[in-house]
Simulated scan of single mutants.
Amino acid sequence: MPLSCSRREARKRDRQEMILQVAQRYFLDHGYAGTTMSGIAATLGGSKGTLWNHFPSKEALFAAVLDRVAQAYRARLSQILDAEGDLEAVLLRACASLVGKITSVEAISVHRVVISEGGRFPELSRIFSELAPGNTRVLLAAFLERAMQRGQLRTADPLDAARALMSLCMAGTHHQLLMGQITSFGPEDVERDAAFAVDLFLRAYAPEPRSAPPPTPASSI
């Protein structure tokens, strides 16, 4: 590739990264309904046409913002999900990572935006479901399916199992933050929620015991 093309592509990526950073903050501050392409363009200091050259709609821009955040998290989670590691230890690390992610200030803010405006903007809920919990669920399901194949977990639908594990992770601190019941938490809360989720999950998906062979009939005398 010619050097001029490389530099042009690099400038384009840098520009898109700047747009996504500004758009993420704008969506969180103004909500989905209150965000306009004109407003983001004004914040960037450029023309609306330049913004539209990178992202053809507000929906596409919101999807790109979420995908940028989700990709970074999925890369981190992929490293944690070590198929060769001890299952319980790996699940504890994965769940602690997940709880830490979903309880971050930005994750709670995005979730609140989706809840409050998803009814008026169905595309908002669809994009969020596909790019945030949806992709994470697929990644977890692939790991759990391998554990099932090795006999470490009972055989079941891996996507359902991943959904159950993620729901358990969201049942404590995340739910309280989302509902405004608490405003702060510490690392011990994250570890507690992860341990709670893994304990219940492993109880529910424990391998089924093998059937004992039938007793040998006593020889008749």
Rank of each mutant, 00 (worst) to 15 (best):
L3C: 08
S4D: 14
S6D: 08
R7P: 02
R8H: 04
R13V: 03
Q16P: 05
Q16R: 13
I19Y: 05
Q21T: 08
A23I: 01
A23G: 03
Q24K: 11
R25D: 12
Y26D: 06
Y32Q: 04
A33T: 08
A33Y: 01
T36L: 09
T36N: 06
S38D: 12
A42V: 09
S47Q: 10
K48S: 10
N53T: 12
H54L: 11
H54S: 12
F55V: 07
P56W: 04
S57F: 04
A60W: 00
A60V: 06
V65Y: 00
R68Y: 01
A70P: 03
Q71R: 11
A72N: 14
R76C: 06
D82S: 11
G85P: 06
D86I: 01
L87A: 00
V90Y: 00
L92D: 02
L92Y: 00
V99M: 03
I102A: 05
T103F: 05
E106F: 04
S109D: 12
S109L: 15
V110Q: 02
R112W: 03
G118R: 06
R120C: 14
E123V: 15
S129E: 15
R137E: 10
R137P: 09
A141L: 02
A141F: 04
M148G: 09
Q149L: 08
R150A: 06
R150D: 01
T155V: 05
A156P: 02
D157I: 00
D157R: 13
L159Q: 07
A162Q: 01
L165D: 03
M166I: 07
M166N: 06
M170G: 09
G172W: 00
Q176F: 14
L177E: 02
L178R: 08
M179T: 14
G180K: 14
G180E: 13
P187C: 08
P187T: 05
E191C: 08
A195T: 02
A197Y: 00
V198S: 00
D199I: 01
L200R: 07
L200G: 05
R210Q: 12
P213H: 14
P214H: 11
P215F: 09
S219H: 07
